[in-house]
């Protein structure tokens, strides 16, 4: 709870100072899970990915969540010099369901290890980041993972990322099958 508040706090601060990454919630498009669509990956235009929560076939009856969707807006990975093995990924997650959802982990083939991180800035302006085990998103609310705030921490990139690359990350939530989300490198 403390961490969520922190994230919300940091998020709102960062909205206020709003640096890059334009929001574009109007371009809501559904994509097939796990489709990488590498060919259309040239543009780094913001992309909204909506994944239907009652994912029909794969979901056992007893785990069926409430209706509504979890939406991923503008998923992107920071392009870093090839000598840097680490990077960070960002996305706005909107929980359109009636229940709180908890992001419990992220996996991708491109890196050795992926963690959810939060950032703290002390009075002297020193930034430090630390791992959090999970990230709760209240119903009908949006949590922003963004520069200088909470982020998806990528350790040990297996290959350098190039601008325009699409990277699929599998986002694991409680009471949900994992949701693949395509992140563009920019």
């Amino acid at each position: 709870m403390r961490s969520l508040l922190l994230i919300l706090l940091i998020s709102s601060v960062c909205i206020a100072c709003g640096p890059s990454a334009p929001d574009n919630t109007d371009t809501s498009t559904s994509i097939e899970p796990a489709s990488t669509k590498g060919s259309s990956a040239v543009s780094s235009a913001p992309e909204t990915v909506a994944v239907a929560s009652p994912a029909g076939e794969a979901l056992p009856e007893d785990e069926a969540p409430s209706s509504g969707t979890i939406e991923f807006d503008d998923p992107w990975i920071r392009m870093v010099p090839s000598v840097s093995p680490n990077s960070a990924a960002y996305v706005s997650i909107t929980n359109g369901t009636e229940d709180a959802v908890t992001l419990t982990g992220i996996n991708s083939q491109v890196a050795d290890r992926i963690e959810i991180h939060n950032v703290e800035v002390d009075a002297a302006g020193t930034m430090s980041m630390f791992k959090i085990d999970e990230l709760m998103i209240e119903p009908d609310s949006t949590t922003m993972l963004e520069p200088s705030g909470a982020h998806i921490m990528i350790y040990g990139l297996k290959e350098p990322l190039n601008e325009g690359d699409m990277v699929t990350m599998l986002m694991s939530f409680n009471n949900q099958p994992p949701i693949p989300v395509n992140f563009s490198v920019k």
Partner: peptide, 10 residues
């Protein structure tokens, strides 16, 4: 530092 994922590349 170069292993920095967020603040430094930014």
């Amino acid at each position: 530092f170069t292993f920095c994922p967020d603040a430094c590349p930014m």
